[in-house]
Design a binder for these strands. Structure first.
Lengths: 334, 334
DNA sequence: CTGTTAGCGCTTTCAA
DNA sequence: TTGAAAGCGCTAACAG
């Protein structure tokens, strides 16, 4: 529990010399630096973070609001958290976690200056938290891209471009009747992910562009629903020769069902998913996909937060990460 | 960005009066309190956390080291994190997350006083981090119960008692040949979970106590391994009539395999698992189990950390949460 | 290259 | 019931 004053006395120099020796913000003679370092080692000194925070008006802490709702995938959340931790640590920032459900607390850690900036995961369309977040004086970065971001910075995968790319890749490989598979849209009350609209729009635009009919299928992630969809539309009627799947919870299930009903990919049917790489490679197949780069989103969110912290002039904007197609086992060569 | 000095001026009182009005640590006349509160509202004042931390020498932050290794279950990690967040928030603490893999950083947040105490998840037998953690001046709580905790506080489920309870319950329901199923012990280099030894010991002790032979089966969580175990020991030879399963990754798989091979629970075979409740209810069956109370472990870790923070006199000790048996579908009535 | 000193914004003793 | 003032431990002018 030695303080800098102790070090100064021990090393026979002044307080500020110790400070500058540590920060390197002004030249210190080698001799002095060594005596200071020796004193630090001898007394096992560690600078007090709270004192530094008060003097500097920066805590070197990033706030992260994580969703705890049962319907969000813990695996995805942990991947976000991990990439954000990593990116923050690289810039010597630590991460303070708050649950998104406790929004009052989220606001409070920002208002009381416990954190220098806030990253908010799992933003939904018309998110009720946006107005209060926009009122904050600290930088806020939303993960997600709501129609009205209230002037806040956003990072997300470019789901519109991703959907278009997926459909184009299917078409370029010979598919001419491509359906989109997605989860049922929640009731008017339920939360709508910010990507839902954009993904669907991208699908429709690509279909129009390529002169294909668009056909959106909303599928509950239950075995029965998937089974009957495959039976009715892919086996009895060979209605589609391409599937654009934006439906993570049903992806592995779909693979098992196609296998069980003898629909062979990519011969009978080509499939391209939009999903994180690991879920595309989960289950009995490896799905060609437009991968959602979760780590890159996390890293970008940290970069944006820190950017807004240093240069206060950056105009608020959304950053949408560009898609890339990863051919795996469910598409033909082109 | 108003400070307390601003509030004092605005309300026409002294700085200390504002402080006491907020903390309630000395009586303030209603009139004064109201004027202070009015000023606070008018100026939108929020106390600066870093100033308070410096004055109080407490940050109201708990450090939490979470594992990021690919072989730990994200779902379990998130359940721990959630319960720890909840318990911390209840005591007006926030949680700073560090990855367990970056141990240097974990130590640093404690040494620099960024956190008041540290909770370390996923402690393994002979954990290399223990000596350095023990040297810290802040309270540390380990989740896990290593043979040598180096004088640190520990919280864990009582796996020894849990294993004994599981075996006794099987025996009381008529099982007389009970095998234990567990994952393969890692090589001598790999990390050994702190519960491995205790769970196995509990199984052996209960078998001895009940006059049963003990038979430990180490099973890789692969379909082939499970299939051949079921075939060889449960179908061709009906070697066991009870299974004590401490093997989370194989549990659902075992259920599917038994179903496929026509082994019926609880008629042909009774099964009791040690696992979190949700994994016991996952897959094609609902396994009777001794539930690992993850939320309670998380809450207890927070309680212990805060306890050691207030009363420095508490002797270091391990707290082992007692098991309870939850009958589900894989055991008979007794 | 080094020292002196005035903050950062709160808490709390001491004094009224 | 209230006020004045001394810290908490560091940073960063300002002054040599």
């Amino acid at each position: 529990m030695a303080t800098m004053t102790d070090i100064a006395r021990e090393a026979g120099v002044s307080l500020s010399t110790v400070s500058y020796a540590l920060s390197g913000k002004r030249p210190i003679s080698d001799a002095t630096r060594e005596r200071v370092q020796a004193a630090i080692d001898r007394l096992d000194f560690h600078p007090r973070a709270s004192a530094r925070a008060l003097a500097l008006q920066r805590t070197s802490l990033l706030g992260l609001a994580v969703p705890q709702r049962p319907d969000v995938d813990d695996h995805v959340v942990m991947e976000f958290v991990g990439s954000i931790l990593g990116a923050a640590h690289e810039q010597d920032y630590d991460v303070l976690l708050v649950t998104a459900e406790d929004h009052a607390r989220t606001l409070r850690v920002a208002e009381e200056g416990k954190v220098d900036a806030l990253i908010v995961m799992d933003v939904v369309e018309g998110d009720a938290r946006i107005p209060s977040l926009a009122r904050l004086h600290s930088p806020v970065v939303l993960i997600g891209n709501p129609q009205d971001a209230g002037g806040l910075a956003c990072v997300d995968f470019d789901f519109l471009a991703g959907a278009m790319l997926a459909v184009r890749e299917l078409h370029a490989r010979g598919a001419s009747r491509v359906a989109m598979l997605k989860p049922p849209s929640a009731g008017p009350d339920g939360p709508v992910p910010t990507y839902a609209r954009r993904s669907r729009l991208g699908y429709a635009m690509a279909c129009a562009e390529l002169g294909m009919e668009s056909h959106v299928v909303e599928l509950p992630p239950e075995p029965e629903a998937v089974t009957s969809f495959v039976r009715d539309h892919l086996v009895e009627q060979r209605e589609f020769d391409g599937l654009f799947v934006h439906h993570e919870p049903a992806l592995a299930l779909l693979g098992r069902t196609l296998l069980a009903q003898g629909v062979h990919c990519p011969d009978d049917l080509q499939v391209v998913a939009v999903s994180p790489a690991d879920v595309a490679m989960n289950g009995p197949w490896e799905v060609s996909s437009v991968d959602i780069p979760i780590p890159a989103i996390g890293q970008t969110s940290v970069a944006m937060a820190l950017e807004r912290l240093s240069t206060h002039e950056t105009p608020a904007h959304a950053r949408l990460l560009s898609p890339a197609f990863v051919p795996r086992g469910t598409t033909r060569a082109r």
